[in-house]
């Protein structure tokens, strides 16, 4: 029979931290990956985020808000990391998509294609989209985290999806279309 781990001298803060790492590190890594598009940078960002979280763990009052809190820390870490070497991003057309693409999201294709399309989104759309999809954050929470108004975030989320559909629709057409 395996010996259970010794937990007698583990204090509540360490237990909370360990539980948080185990529960949220995967989503946090995915968010970091979508911000940086690099496995190594993403891992470093997650590591740094949890390091900062440990130092400020007393500030976390509510377990429900842990994920949004960590996402906010990570986004700031990423911003700090790329403060001086912001990558050039090609802005896409912000106009509303064609009805056809809008009406046929099932044409979005497999995960790899969608992933590639998400990767082509500008940072200002991809980041809030990742916060919403991976972090389960509401527009209000994203707005609070990014220091924007909720209306502006709603617009970014709307445009992110429209551009995604447009990108996937265009690719589908180039490939001969899919149904």
């Amino acid at each position: 029979m395996p010996t259970p781990p010794v937990k007698g001298d583990v204090n509540p803060k360490q237990r909370q931290y360990e539980a948080m790492v185990r529960a949220l590190s995967a989503d946090l890594y995915r968010f970091a990956w979508w911000l940086s598009r690099s496995e190594t940078v993403a891992q470093d960002l997650v590591q740094e985020t949890f390091l900062r979280a440990w130092k400020n763990l007393d500030a976390l009052r509510d377990a429900e808000s842990a994920k949004a809190w960590l996402f906010t820390i990570l986004r700031r870490e990423h911003a700090r990391l790329y403060e001086r070497k912001r990558l050039e991003v090609v802005e896409l057309d912000d106009t509303l998509p064609e009805d056809a693409a809008y009406a046929s999201p099932e044409r979005s294709g497999d995960a790899a294609q969608v992933r590639e399309a998400i990767g082509r989104l500008p940072d200002k759309y991809r980041a809030p989209l990742a916060m919403q999809v991976l972090g389960g954050m509401s527009a209000d929470e994203i707005a609070e985290s990014t220091g924007q108004k909720a209306g502006a975030v709603m617009t970014q989320l709307f445009r992110a999806r429209q551009q995604l559909k447009k990108l996937l629709g265009g690719r589908a057409a180039a490939e001969g279309g899919r149904t």
């Binding site: 931290y17 360990e18 790492v21 185990r22 590190s25 995967a26 890594y29 995915r30 990956w33 979508w34 496995e39 891992q43 997650v46 590591q47 949890f50 390091l51 440990w54 999201p105 099932e106 979005s108 294709g109 995960a111 790899a112 969608v114 992933r115 998400i118 989209l129 990742a130 999809v133 991976l134 999806r161 995604l164 559909k165």
Partner: peptide, 27 residues
């Protein structure tokens, strides 16, 4: 909803094995 399923699936990039353990070990 279906489109969102695709987006969620696409965003769920693979997580490196043992990530949580490595974070805890470093900590």
């Amino acid at each position: 909803q279906r489109f969102e399923d695709d987006v969620e699936a696409a965003m769920a990039v693979p997580v490196p094995d043992g990530l949580a353990d490595r974070i805890l070990l470093a900590h």
